[in-house]
Design a protein around this nucleic acid. Structure first.
Lengths: 152, 152
DNA sequence: AGTGAAACACTCTAGAT
DNA sequence: ATCTAGAGTGTTTCACT
């Protein structure tokens, strides 16, 4: 159930790049029959190694051309502050990632907005929901790499 | 070709969450027949709004439990330094994202590794390839949110 | 231009060998 | 692992509005 061999890795690698291909093509790619391949994919799904399949959209074409990383500090250590913060970021669709980092009271947020004005609106909404002692934004000038493919 | 209406948004939203559902289900969800829906999806794909469909894997189950953000500074401003750096990060599969940030000579890298020892190996490989004057890592202690779904 | 209904062709899925 | 068969899906065609 946890044993992932070379063929499984090849399958996963192919599906990370393109989840649309038929089992026929996938099987050919990894040197397996359509059916043997299907069974392995099924196991990988049921064991949760494959979490789900999704469509990846183009941010530019949706008017979300500005990617921003927001560094957040708080002085507040209420037991439920974090809970409130977590709930807030989950409800804001522009926020793609939010992480509690090493270094005690540091949080990092990754968001996508249309422009600087739109970022400011996001910022205002965020500080209205939870109190943050220090917030600093860094904007992405150039995307050298961005992928959902994990190393296998 | 660039006009995305409400129904398209509903389609995109559904496919961002789950690209596996049939056109039948998808159509029902947005109030369209199977193939009215199919034609819209086709257009969204051809116009590039839908970039691709991929499988998302579970990092834990693949032994990539440690997420890390690496902040990089360089003193080098050779015209081709950036090119070399970009090539290097693209070739390293543990690196999921690499960004040139505002603030002149600041780069941010997002990577996934198995543990701190594995991070060190990544670090060594990176500085062997390109010269970096300052590198500092922050590790993710807790993932509050992480999604590929864009705001629609 | 954009829709729904039906026909077709193909792929998935599952059981048996 | 291969074969087979049935169910379900994507895709095309056509008629309609």
């Amino acid at each position: 159930m946890d044993n992932i061999d070379t063929i499984d890795r090849r399958i996963l690698s192919a599906l990370q790049q393109d989840a649309d291909q038929s089992l026929e093509d996938l099987g050919a790619k990894v040197g397996l029959s359509r059916n043997a391949c299907w069974r392995r994919v099924r196991i990988l799904q049921e064991s949760g190694v494959i979490r789900k399949r999704v469509a990846l959209l183009d941010p530019q074409k949706l008017g979300l051309g500005l990617s921003v990383f927001i560094q957040v500090r708080t002085s507040n250590h209420d037991p439920d502050w974090l809970d409130k913060f977590a709930r807030a970021v989950k409800l804001m669709p522009e926020i793609l990632g939010a992480y509690r980092m090493t270094g005690d009271l540091d949080y990092l947020i990754h968001a996508r907005v249309s422009d600087v004005k739109d970022y400011d609106a996001l910022y205002q909404r965020l500080i209205a929901k939870v109190d943050l002692s220090d917030v600093s934004a860094s904007f992405v000038m150039e995307e050298l790499k961005e992928t959902t493919e994990l190393s296998l």
